[in-house]
């Protein structure tokens, strides 16, 4: 049955003891993982909300990824550490820890076949690791500022890395060669009065047909230090690099923390800022969202379940929320 974002509703929510930062589904839809400002990772059972803590980081965990077979969780964060975990264990202990970057790791992504892990962060280096044994396969330099996001092309041939300045580097995975750059400069601004760079490519996504490549973040940042800004997605034609759509959400103040493309060919954005928390839904040929769903609290990350029907969001108010993209089940009488 197709999804219906206009019927989106929060189906369940569970509270942690600290504000949450990031979340990812287990692809087998047994669990959702979240991270929190207390440096821990939480594994939540989707059917009951039962929670277990995973502890191995000395800083906030900014990035999670789960292998497609549902066996291995990867976590990375402000301590520069990349950690492998068994997903379903009852007594979580790291399988492997690698001191992967100098400073923050901001993003972790898995290759489509699951054999490679890419990490990026504040040291401006893109690193590719073997999922199987944790060895460094190669590293690439070319960014001139902090790298915020990373994503493999669905073919696995290329790796994309997006930075604070709005530059996306396209790397050939087999060689580490820089193929070309996208310049999503609308997502970056420099405020001379405040002396700060702001924005960046916060998230990237391919549409299901892979002819469109999207970069999400923020623009109109009149007051970066005061959180005055609006969400923006730049949609590019992958082959030509032509900007084909700038997707916005009028009247909403806040950055897009993550974008994902739904298999039914609409884009979902998690927007959390001055206006509160929203899930925004865009059609590929429209610049304004076709639906916005307001969440009870400011959202900081989202993930889409492999069945396409559930969205996990994590929030400042310490809650993990599961939103279903369908009408509520009618109450039994």
């Amino acid at each position: 049955m197709p999804t219906d974002p206009t019927k989106a509703h929060v189906a369940s929510q569970w509270a942690h003891t600290s504000p949450l930062i990031a979340c990812r589904f287990d692809p087998l839809n047994r669990f959702v993982f979240s991270t929190a400002e207390d440096n821990t990772i939480q594994r939540w059972k989707l059917d009951s909300g039962e929670k277990i803590a995973f502890t191995a980081h000395d800083s906030w965990v900014f990035a999670l990824a789960v292998t497609a077979n549902g066996e291995t969780l990867l976590s990375a964060g402000g301590d520069g550490r990349l950690v492998w975990w068994p997903v379903a264990t009852e007594k979580p202990e790291p399988i492997r820890k690698v001191e992967a970057h100098q400073g923050w790791i901001r993003a972790v992504t898995l290759s489509p076949d699951g054999s490679l892990i890419a990490t990026v962060g504040n040291d401006q280096i893109v690193k590719v690791w073997s999922t199987a044994d944790g060895t460094l396969v190669r590293q690439m330099s070319g960014h001139e500022n902090q790298i915020y996001s990373a994503l493999f092309h669905p073919t696995g041939q290329f790796l994309l890395s997006g930075d604070l300045l709005g530059i996306v580097c396209q790397w050939e995975v087999a060689t580490g060669n820089l193929v070309r750059k996208f310049e999503a400069k609308e997502l970056h601004s420099y405020n001379g009065g405040q002396g700060v760079h702001f924005g960046g490519v916060r998230s990237m996504a391919f549409n299901p047909q892979t002819q469109h490549f999207s970069c999400g973040g923020l623009y109109k940042s009149e007051n970066p230090l005061g959180a005055v800004l609006e969400p923006l997605v730049n949609v590019y034609e992958w082959e030509s690099q032509k900007l084909v759509q700038s997707q916005i959400a009028e009247g909403i103040k806040g950055p897009l923390w993550r974008i994902v493309n739904h298999p039914e060919s609409y884009l979902i954005g998690a927007c959390g800022g001055n206006s509160g928390g929203f899930l925004l839904f865009w059609r590929p040929d429209q610049n304004k969202e076709f639906h916005r769903f307001q969440l009870p609290n400011l959202v900081r990350d989202l993930d889409l379940s492999s069945d396409g029907i559930q969205i996990a969001t994590i929030h400042f108010d310490k809650h993990l929320r599961i939103t279903r993209l369908e009408a509520k089940a009618e109450a039994k009488t």
Partner: peptide, 13 residues
């Protein structure tokens, strides 16, 4: 040295 009035994204800034 300016500016540290980081009501937003304190850690990035």
């Amino acid at each position: 040295h300016s500016n540290y009035d980081t009501h937003n994204e304190n850690f990035n800034f």
